[in-house]
Amino acid sequence: MSGAPRTVGGWTGYGFAHEACVYDTDAAVRARVLPFVEEGLDRGEPVVVVAGDAVRHMLDAALGKRVDDLEVYAPSDSFWFGGHETLATYYESMQPLLEAGVPWRLVGEPTWLATPGGEVWSRFESVANVAFADFPYYSLCLHDRRRLDPALVRAQLRVHPTVWDGHQPVRSPDYQPTEAYLRSVEPAWSAPPAEHSTLGITDVVTARADLRGWLDTRTVPSRASEVLLAVYELVTNALRAAGAAEVAQWTDGMHVVWQISDGGPGFDDAIAGYVPPPPGLESGRGLWLARSLADDSTLRGTAAGTAVRLLFRHDEVVRRQMAG
């Protein structure tokens, strides 16, 4: 044994390591990725690669037939389904590796960061630090500075505990713990405006009919079914937790906001609803679904219980964006 592998710093195969490699030349990304992949293959570790065309072409040329030994070898474009679904897809693809119980390596290049809506992925990178903390893999995330807005690169440096300094993985000076990062990018938790509508719900039998009648006059028309499902799931959570739910609705700039609150025991878990539901049928999925349907969301434990805010863009805003 020669001690810790050279390309993964102090990672010994236990727990999750999460590195951002920001590069600006093809030579730089080759210098980081190729040894990382070759070392993994040499050690018999499963190696997963989800990357853009340039990185995969480089690996094709350098590895030759050895690309067939990669556990997964997929283009990044095939992996983007929005933040929630994409993290869930990663999670699902990891299940066989988790069951096998061996450490593995991942090269991930989230090229979707540069696409409309793709910036939300930084939140899920941050969530992975907590949700996958016990998973035995090293995730090397590639970011091409030539393609990404500087703000996106800065965000990546805040959500990866480790960065590549050109020679070795080092601690990221910009790293923020998950909860602090999420709170900094989620909608601010300001008081609702004085003018807002509320609906109290206590009857599980008529909950959805009550809600539908109320939402029909307030919803975002093109998203009506998504709004109903998302709000309804949180209402039923509240009814189970506290026996009563209150739904409030108001407009905040480009968004219509729905706040669902209850007087239950409450929790203030910033990553709740970001983490993919685990395998098995018993775990809750309502909050995850609600947050995935909304354009944005945030959650707070309050003195009274728990409150979740779901934000959906105005139809008019959506139309302008599509026309523009």
């Binding site: 959805r208 799931e233 049928l281 999925r285 679904l289």
Partner: peptide, 11 residues
Amino acid sequence: FIDVGGTRALA
């Protein structure tokens, strides 16, 4: 319409 609980019953 089917909610998460109803879908869990199907699963």
